[in-house]
Write a protein that binds this DNA or RNA. Sequence first.
DNA 1: TCAATACTTAGCCTCGTGGCTAAGTATTCG
DNA 2: CGAATACTTAGCCACGAGGCTAAGTATTGA
Lengths: 109, 109
Amino acid sequence: MAKYSAVLDDVFVALADPTRRGVVRRLGEGPATVGELARAYPMALPSFMKHVRTLESAGLIRTAKTGRVRTCVLDRERLAVVEDWLAEQRHVWEQRTDRLEQFIGEEDS
Amino acid sequence: MAKYSAVLDDVFVALADPTRRGVVRRLGEGPATVGELARAYPMALPSFMKHVRTLESAGLIRTAKTGRVRTCVLDRERLAVVEDWLAEQRHVWEQRTDRLEQFIGEEDS
DNA sequence: TCAATACTTAGCCTCGTGGCTAAGTATTCG
DNA sequence: CGAATACTTAGCCACGAGGCTAAGTATTGA
């Protein structure tokens, strides 16, 4: 466990930008083309495409080109690594609480 | 909602580094001093301190100096913003699924 | 008091990220 | 065919992140 550091890096980095979180959110509603997605942001297309590529290489989205249009889809599986990390974090915390309780128990006896 | 963009930025950026995730994980087990934390990483202390400051200004940890020692504590509240973002994301997805089901239902009738 | 400890400050360096423009390619529509 | 559309490629730029060393400050133990 915790061996997915590289994946976690990529996913957290990808989510650490409001534009990219916006895209993830939008794609949660369903697939969209690069053009449709880009329209929501005040930046040049090449700049926007970098965000798309970042999301794609983080595995958060998949894209495919049909004709001259590239369509993007959310890959919800990948978001699970964040959930997993949070779960692990909770687990660490709970073990700590257990130790504290045990400590108090020992004090009692 | 989704107005916490700046906070989310800071939190995701803070978590997008293995050193900092390591610190968060370690602090999940309980408070520690900067020196204790730094020992686990092969970098100079000033470099490590930057990570601590990043975590602190993201609100993920709190630190306080007593004598010459600075002690760090995890602020679990702040991790909740990540959970919240994930929950919102799930919500978006579920609404989408609902719409699809409704669409199929309409087709049926 | 003096040395060791535990940061802290200052300053420098390199690389990657996020933005841009300009020009190119490949489809599609009239 | 020719023009419009939808990216794509190339290349540039500025800034910030993450690393370093060297030197400074403030506590603490002997």
